[in-house]
Design a protein around this nucleic acid. Sequence first.
DNA 1: TTATTTATGTATCAATCATTACATAAAGGA
DNA 2: TCCTTTATGTAATGATTGATACATAAATAA
Lengths: 201, 201
Amino acid sequence: MLPKGRPRAFDRDAALERAMRVFWQKGYDSASMSDLTEAMQINAPSLYAAFGSKAGLFRAAVELYTNQVGRRIKNALPTAATAKEGIADFLKQTAISHTHPGQPHGCMVVLGALHGEEGADTPCSLLRERRLENVVLLRERLERGVREGELSPKADLQQIAEFYATVQHGMSITARDGATLDQLVKTAYAAMAAWEGLTAG
Amino acid sequence: MLPKGRPRAFDRDAALERAMRVFWQKGYDSASMSDLTEAMQINAPSLYAAFGSKAGLFRAAVELYTNQVGRRIKNALPTAATAKEGIADFLKQTAISHTHPGQPHGCMVVLGALHGEEGADTPCSLLRERRLENVVLLRERLERGVREGELSPKADLQQIAEFYATVQHGMSITARDGATLDQLVKTAYAAMAAWEGLTAG
DNA sequence: TTATTTATGTATCAATCATTACATAAAGGA
DNA sequence: TCCTTTATGTAATGATTGATACATAAATAA
């Protein structure tokens, strides 16, 4: 069941992964078509035929990032036996990912497109939605903790979720500034020192 | 003692403040000369005569931001009687500033130029230096706390400083995502819940 | 073969970027 | 008045941006 016309001469997935690296490192605006086509080792018409536009390529890159890099971090939440362990591992996995050798430091969802038009379907709004989804994931894990008796029903789960999401956001900046894995792990550990006070209800 | 030639027809300080707003809102790269000259209500040659270049204008804008917006935040540290109160107010002032009506949300030092060349004297490296200076300020306040008997000499002051700096970084992202003053104040309060655990030594 | 369909490489598009010539205007000094 | 100095507005600079036109190449279908 081969498609009709001339077959594509490049590996779409490999090219997308290279594009993701460029967006991750330089951000949407600073990543030029020249940067992208050079890294993907294709010409502009091939890029447009495969991804539609620069914005379309970015959307595909964000989805790949979410499924590849983001998955390990988010997976910590449902896997752990308790909300406390889940969030602790969530932050630890963030520290590991944000300082992983051979890849850009910090999170693409935080650093990939901070400035941009407020309108819908912009690269900026796309990433903001992902960040807000992250807060929801944290809160839902906390809600499970309440259901399972780990946490008091009086605890302000939204506050706790926003606090740890904010710490995670900040770790991207700190990682870009040159922090080591050890430093970020210590920051994650420091954030967990607030746990008892936050969940006292 | 007036200067010799034709006098400047615009208010340099007022124009600089308008430029600061543009850089603060859009970031260095996304702020075009058209954006800047329109906001400053001058033409490009006047901008270059007064500030040398776009990068020179940015440096001046960052210095204005530091002396104007940043001062209130940093002033919390030496003013407070204790390191704990100082950092608590530091975060609270950050929350207030980052959600202040009528000005861009989040911190210009964090959001103003995240991507850019690694070389020296770039807008990106300029802001990174300011962020690292912030960590030093926090650590120095903690050191004072040790000298004054508030904190144990065994406490990991660098860890504590980096943690609260990271929280502050994250608050810029969260503020840009639409968080309210109340939400950010709660996050600041949550971060202070870690204090006892962090300073136990 | 011939027709159709899709991909590729070259070369280019208009738009925008930061920056600057250049002529003119407005001040002080002689 | 005339000279020097600085500022201004217009207009344009070369470079780069994201996106395409076009001819050609490589596949399937008839």
